[in-house]
C-alpha cells in the first residue's frame, strides 16, 4: 500500500538515469538532413530545368528499392523508412550533372547502396560515405558523362568554373554573386551556395552538425588556395594571391563540407578528431584542385579522410579520468 500522501514534489522523486529525454532518433536526424537539403534541390531544378528533378527522383527511388531488395534477400528487417537510403540517393543525385541519361543515377544509387553500404552490413557499418562511393564509381566508369555540364537556364554545354580554371581560361563574366546564387555550370545540388547555406544554418540551429568539420574544411581549402593558388608560381616572387573566395564558392565544397563530410557514420567521434578530419579534407581538396588531374577534389578528399577516420578516432580517444 502506497502512503496516502504521495510525494508530489518532483524534486524528491529518485529515478534511474538518463533523466533528460530528448525526442531524437537516427531516422529523425536523417529526415531533418533531407529537409535541409530541399532548398538546394529546388534551386538546382530552377536553374537547370525539369530534367534534374527526374534525376533526383530516380536517384532516390532506386536507392530505396536497392536497400529494400537487399534487406529482403538477406532476410533482415526492411528499414527504408529510416531515411538513410533516401538521403544517400538524394546526395548522389545532387552530385550529378543535370543532363545525365536516366540510367546513370540508377546505376550510381544501386552501387552506392549495395557496395557502399549493405556489403558492410548496413547503416552504421559502412566505412565510406555511400553517396560518394556511388559518385566515385560513376566517375571511374563513365567519366565523360560525369564531366559534361550544361549551363544554367539553357542546355548549352558549359564548363564548370573550376574546370575552366584548370584549363587556364577563367570565365570572364562570372562574378562572386553568380557563384553564390548558382548561375553557372555544375552538379545539380552544389551550385546554389545560398540554398545550401540556408539548409546548413537549419542544421546548425537544431544542433545536428557542429562547426568543427565544415569550418576547418572550408578554411583550410581557402587558406591553401590563397597561398598556392595564384596564377604565378610561388618561386617567381608571387604567391599569396590565390582567389580563395572563388575556390570556396565554386565546386562542391559547400555541399561536401556541410552535408557529406559531417556524416555521423564516416567521420570521427571526438571534437579534436573532427578538426583533424576537416583540415585533412580541406588540404586534400586544395591539393587536388591546384596540382591534381581533376578540376574538383571535394568528393575524393572526403573519401580519403573517411578511410583515415578509424585511425583518427584511435589517436584522439578521450582519456579516462584518472587513468
Amino acid at each position: 500500500m502506497p502512503p496516502k500522501d504521495e510525494i508530489k514534489d518532483n524534486r524528491l522523486t529518485v529515478s534511474f538515469s538518463p533523466h533528460l529525454h530528448k525526442d531524437e532518433s537516427v531516422s529523425r536526424i536523417m529526415w531533418m538532413v533531407v529537409l535541409s537539403l530541399v532548398p538546394a534541390g529546388i534551386a538546382g531544378v530552377a536553374i537547370f530545368g525539369l530534367n534534374s528533378l527526374w534525376v533526383i527522383l530516380l536517384g532516390i527511388i532506386s536507392a530505396l528499392v536497392t536497400e529494400a531488395a537487399l534487406q529482403v534477400a538477406t532476410k533482415r528487417k526492411v528499414s527504408i523508412s529510416d531515411g538513410s537510403a533516401f538521403l544517400t540517393g538524394l546526395l548522389l543525385a545532387y552530385n550529378l550533372p543535370p543532363d545525365v541519361p536516366f540510367w546513370l543515377p540508377i546505376a550510381g544509387s544501386v552501387f552506392a547502396i549495395a557496395i557502399g553500404k549493405q556489403i558492410f552490413g548496413g547503416l552504421g557499418q559502412n566505412i565510406f560515405n555511400p553517396a560518394l562511393v556511388g559518385r566515385a564509381f560513376l566517375m571511374a566508369c563513365w567519366p565523360k558523362l560525369m564531366t559534361t555540364f550544361s549551363g544554367p537556364f539553357d542546355a548549352i554545354t558549359q564548363a564548370t568554373p573550376l574546370a575552366a580554371l584548370k584549363e587556364g581560361k577563367l570565365i570572364e563574366h562570372i562574378s562572386y554573386l553568380d557563384l553564390f546564387l548558382g548561375k553557372h555550370g555544375g552538379c545539380i545540388g552544389e551550385v546554389s551556395i545560398l540554398a545550401l547555406l540556408l539548409g546548413a544554418l537549419f542544421l546548425f540551429i537544431r544542433g545536428y552538425i557542429s562547426w568543427h568539420i565544415p569550418f576547418t574544411f572550408i578554411f583550410t581549402t581557402g587558406l591553401i588556395t590563397f597561398i598556392f593558388g595564384g596564377t604565378q608560381p610561388l618561386g617567381a616572387g608571387a604567391g599569396f594571391g590565390g582567389d580563395w573566395l572563388f575556390h570556396i564558392l565554386s565546386g562542391g565544397l559547400i555541399l561536401g563540407a556541410f552535408f557529406m563530410a559531417t556524416d555521423y557514420v564516416t567521420s570521427p567521434l571526438t571534437r579534436k578528431g573532427q578538426i583533424i578530419f576537416g583540415i585533412g579534407c580541406g588540404a586534400l581538396t586544395a591539393v587536388i584542385r591546384i596540382w591534381g588531374g581533376y578540376p574538383e577534389g571535394v568528393s575524393y578528399a572526403i573519401l580519403m579522410m573517411n578511410a583515415a577516420t578509424p585511425i583518427i578516432d584511435r589517436y584522439t580517444k578521450t582519456r579516462v579520468y584518472g587513468a
Binding site: 546505376a107 563513365w142 567519366p143
Partner: peptide, 9 residues
C-alpha cells in the same frame, strides 16, 4: 550498352 569502365581496371 555503355560499358562501366571500372570493371576493366
Amino acid at each position: 550498352f555503355e560499358p562501366a569502365r571500372v570493371f576493366g581496371m
